[in-house]
Amino acid sequence: MVVIRKKLVLESLAAKITYGKINKKNYVVVHETDNERSGADADAHARLQMNGNSRQASWHWQVDDKEAVQSFEHNWACWAAGSDKGNKEGIQVETCVNNDGNYLKAVQNTAELVAKIMKDEGIPISNVVQHNHFSAKNCPSKMRAGKVSWSQFIAMVKTASGAVQQPNPITDNNKYRVLTGTYSTIQAAENVLDVLKQRFGWVAYIEPDGKLWRVKTGTFTGADAAKAGANKIKTAKLAQVTNIVAA
């Protein structure tokens, strides 16, 4: 059962990176992000879209080993499939391949999401296709290389329940920030800041600490979210030490 949540792109931005609300919703098009960098998970890709993707591209869903995040309602015709037909008739689903995630679990979550989309939109299994189907691009590349074969994925979709789980409601509404340990040069801090802002899609700042420098994030709602943020920084090897402080 995949956890799903929405992080929708504002309509004013969506109008600039889609064909508009003209999607016929005849296909589910499966992609992979091809972004293996640590931290390039579903939340990071959703934030990338929400903050204004530097590429002329858009997609409805991103899925990792923990959750599926929706960026566009299905009636938007996103720019992802490489052809007019694929873009204007397809619901685009990106599977994350970040190296700090569990690829097999991400594929399983994608199968659960695809089963739900099929049920919600009345799409037959014969119209669940690869990005390659519309543009001949080698995508989803890991599936096409056999890490999980396409036939195995389709079998997962057929047996998936399509059931979803909403994220646990936030009961701690307090605001927190994550502070890294110190860096000896501002360039080192700027390198970390660039990753947090560009790869993770976070708000973040550099603060002086005497002759040293540290990076401070924007706010997280709830201690659990802040802890997850701190762990993400450590997993990406951006800082050995992190501290969580009240905002």
Rank of each mutant, 00 (worst) to 15 (best):
K216Q: 12
G229T: 05
T180H: 12
L212Y: 09
P124G: 07
D64S: 06
A77K: 03
Q92F: 14
V178K: 02
F200I: 01
D41C: 14
K105P: 11
G222D: 10
A77S: 12
A46Y: 03
K197E: 00
E94R: 02
L179A: 05
R5M: 13
Q187C: 06
Y183E: 00
D41L: 13
V30M: 09
E112G: 03
G122C: 13
L179Y: 15
Y205C: 02
N168W: 00
S184T: 15
D64H: 07
R47I: 03
A145T: 04
R177D: 06
L104K: 08
V30A: 04
V114D: 08
D43H: 05
A57S: 14
A81V: 14
N87G: 11
E207P: 10
T185N: 08
Q130R: 15
W76D: 09
K137I: 12
A204L: 03
F134V: 15
G210E: 06
I123T: 04
V28P: 08
W202V: 04
N231R: 03
R5Q: 13
A40Q: 02
G201N: 02
S141Y: 06
Q108D: 11
A145R: 00
K158C: 08
A136C: 11
K105R: 12
V107A: 08
G210M: 12
A106L: 06
G181C: 13
V178E: 01
E11N: 12
L179E: 05
L8T: 04
V245E: 04
Q240I: 08
W150N: 01
R214Q: 06
I91V: 12
I206N: 00
G181N: 07
E89G: 14
A111V: 11
C139Q: 01
K216A: 13
N102V: 14
K227G: 06
K21L: 07
R177Q: 11
D172N: 14
N191C: 03
A81K: 02
M143Q: 04
L13I: 05
A225F: 11
R144D: 01
V114F: 13
Q56E: 10
V128F: 10
K66A: 10
K88F: 09
L193C: 04
L13Q: 05
W213F: 15
M143R: 00
V245I: 15
D84N: 07
A57W: 15
S71W: 13
E36Q: 09
R177Y: 06
K237T: 07
A44R: 00
P124F: 12
E67F: 11
N102L: 14
T171N: 07
G90Q: 01
V215M: 02
R37L: 09
K234V: 06
N26Q: 14
D65H: 14
I233F: 15
D65F: 12
L104W: 04
V93E: 00
Q166S: 14
I233W: 12
R199L: 08
R144G: 00
G222H: 05
Q49W: 09
T219Y: 14
W213V: 11
Y205W: 13
K211T: 15
